[in-house]
Every structure is written in structure tokens, then in C-alpha cells.
Nucleic acid binder design. Structure first.
Lengths: 203, 203
DNA sequence: GCCCTGGTTGACCGATTGGTACAATTTTTC
DNA sequence: GAAAAATTGTACCAATCGGTCAACCAGGGC
């Protein structure tokens, strides 16, 4: 279903993708069933397969749409003002993504844990290039003495890990922070901001 | 299968759990099948169900055995020498676990992402208590001015996230670090050690 | 030899699943 | 408003999966 031609097509494909995101992110690819997706989208199962050729096609459509928005925050980390603030801003942007799009984060996590069978070429291609570019940017900052001596790749890994943790391991975080209720995202922001600022401060 | 009574029982239950760890960690609970586990354990499917009452029982047995060893490194973080070194040592211990037991880490990640349906009581119980204890320990270090002002819970979350990332997202890490080959765990150790040391240094 | 207990298996079953056939219906187009 | 195209639900199929069952085997003690 590449170019929706009618209003009803657009509405239904959107409903399907929305429902599929719900189900796939909660149950994984194998755990999700077309019946569950159909029910949540308020469509019949054959109707799903009228808009998408297969279960896998729905999944791939979701992942494809996701990858771009997932890489955007990193693209915005540029050479400009204070490098430390630039990186901290990226951390907070990424954490905000975890807060606003936890389902997308879990879908992505699921795919990677399973060996990324559907997006391997994305990782080896566009993501790899973006990563190399930003790692080089960080290397430049290090050489200029503007931030502490860190490896760009592992710094970015640590940012991904710490921020996505709040989406992917949400149940654990909430379970352990229960007395504190629901305000843990702003606590996390405060912690990460201070943490990265101290760790990156030159000298 | 609580207490293996014969030699052959012990051998087979171990073979089953080993094979199940392989399959469950790679494909998730739903994605794993008894046939795959049986084949990898070189046993017949009914034979599996002679030793374990159900697929879920195998899974639960794995998780139960895992939780303890997973919490051990944190237990060892005690009040003693330099708090910064104590925390850094914990980070490296945890990273070493990711290197040596990636399947266990992925199994755990899978369970949590899915909402931890089988180990929720473990999280709300023993893990919660351990976490509270260690968070209090960290709070003490902060109040004594021995480490920077950080929240204990979020510090521990960040350690879990950064270290487990190398096991759970192994495919992505390897894909992006490809030119560097396989030695990325020692690079990660160096990065994390410097990172946490700088971020935790008092003042 | 014989038995007995632990261990093993091929054949099978019911439930679920992804996907299809097709007729019925609605919407668009002229 | 009728023909054409797009959309939708009912019934169904083949494959797969977790689990069962009755029969069978191994080998040590008598």
C-alpha cells in the first residue's frame, strides 16, 4: 500500500498501523496476531490483508517509518555552540522521545534483540554513516579540548542505552520507583543532564 | 523437575535448560517452539515434557535461576573503600556479565520489554528491596560528600542500561563498530570506567 | 532367565494462526 | 442512475504448535 488513493484507504491504513504498533510493541512479532491487530483497528482480518499483503508487510512498514524519526535527534547534534551543551541537548531530546514514543522504542528494541532481521541493511547503511559522521564530530571536539577524552561511538551508545532504558524497561523502572509515582521522567532528565555534563566537562 | 534424582535426569535437565536458553533468548517466548528446543537438546519433544510439565515451566525455570545471578554483582557493591571505585568496580562487573552471558541478558530484556509477566513479583519483592538498600547506600555517600550529587536509583538504572546494551543490542553495536572488529568490550570498559569516574568525582 | 522402575518415543489431537476464495456491498465515476 | 471499481464480511484451508497417550526400551537386582 504505497500511495493511498482514497480517503478511506488513508484512514484505514493509518488505523492498521496504529493498532499494529500497539500489538507488535507489546507482544513482539511472533506474539502478535492478525486477529488482535484487526480487533484493535476495528477491521476484519481479511480487510487487513486487503491493505497489506501479509503480517510481515505491516511490521516492515512500521519499522521503515520508524527508523527515520528515530535517527532525527542525532542528526540535529551539530557543531555550533558549546559541545557539552550540544550533547546534553541531544540526551534530553532522546529521553523525550522515550517518554513520548515508548511503543516505538520497544518495537525497535524488540527487533534489535532478535538480531535485527528486517533492518540489518538500515544499520549497515544509513545508520552506520550517520554514526561515523557524529563520532568524527565528537572526535573533533575531543581533539580541540572542548570535551573530555571520550570515544564517540561508545558515548552515543551510552546515550541510546540510558535514554531508551526508560521506555524499554518501563515496567522495571516503574516497579522499583513505585513510591515516587509517575514523575520519574523529569527526575531522569535531571540526573542525566548533570551526569553527562560532569562526565564531559573538559579536564 | 525440582530435585534431579539420577545422573541421567541431571544431564538431561541441564541439556534442556541450555538449549532452551539458546532458543528463548534468540526468539522470545512466543517465537520459541518445543520442537526447536528438543532438537537443540537432542531429545524428543515428549521427552522434554517428561522433565518439565510445560513450555512455560521451562521458561520460568530459566528465569528463576537467572534472577539471582543477575542481582549478585549489585549485592557486592558495599560500603568500604573509595565509593567511586566501588561503583566503577560494579560497572565493570556488570559489563563483564554482558560479555559472558549475553543470552541470559537478552532473555531478561525480552521478559521485561514484554511487561515482565513472569517475574513481576521478583521485581516488586527482592529486587525492590535490594534496590532500596543500595540507593540508600549511595545517598549516604552523597551526603558525606564522597561522590557527586546523584540519585541512587537513576545511577543504578544508567549502569544497567549502559552495560546491558552491549549484550541486548549486540547486533547493532557490532554492525556500527564493524571496522573495529571484536575487541569492543575492552573499549567499552575503558569508556565506561572513565565516564563514571568523571561523573561521580565529588565537587 | 524375570521383573520393575526410570526413561523414551511415534502417532495423534485440538486449538490457533496466517492467509485465501468469493460473494455481497458500498463508493466512485461517468 | 447505472456501470465499474473499490471495499468488506463469512466461511474456509493448510500449517504449526503445545500437549497427550499408549506402547516400548534399558538395565540393574533377584
Amino acid at each position: 500500500m504505497k500511495t493511498p488513493r482514497t480517503r478511506i484507504q488513508k484512514k484505514n491504513t493509518e488505523a492498521i498501523l496504529e493498532a499494529a504498533l500497539d500489538v507488535f510493541s507489546a507482544e513482539g512479532f511472533k506474539g502478535a496476531t492478525l486477529d488482535k491487530i484487526a480487533k484493535r483497528a476495528e477491521l476484519s482480518k481479511p480487510n487487513l490483508l486487503y491493505y497489506f499483503p501479509s503480517k510481515e508487510a505491516i511490521y516492515v512498514a512500521l519499522l521503515g517509518h520508524l527508523m527515520d524519526t528515530w535517527m532525527d535527534p542525532l542528526k540535529e547534534m551539530r557543531d555550533g555552540g558549546d559541545p557539552v551543551e550540544e550533547i546534553v541537548a541531544y540526551v534530553l531530546r532522546k529521553l523525550e522521545m522515550s517518554r513520548k514514543f515508548p511503543r516505538e522504542s520497544r518495537l525497535f528494541a524488540n527487533e534489535i534483540v532478535r538480531g535485527a532481521p528486517h533492518i540489518r541493511d538500515m544499520i549497515d547503511g544509513p545508520l552506520s554513516e550517520l554514526m561515523a559522521e557524529k563520532a568524527a564530530l565528537i572526535r573533533g571536539w575531543v581533539k580541540a579540548g572542548q570535551i573530555a577524552d571520550v570515544d564517540g561511538y561508545h558515548l552515543i551508545f551510552s546515550i541510546w542505552a540510558t535514554t531508551q532504558h526508560y521506555a524499554d524497561f518501563d515496567v522495571q523502572v516503574r516497579g522499583l520507583l513505585r513510591p515516587k509515582g509517575d514523575a520519574h521522567f523529569s527526575d531522569a532528565a535531571k540526573f542525566l543532564e548533570g551526569f553527562y555534563r560532569r562526565a564531559l566537562r573538559p579536564n
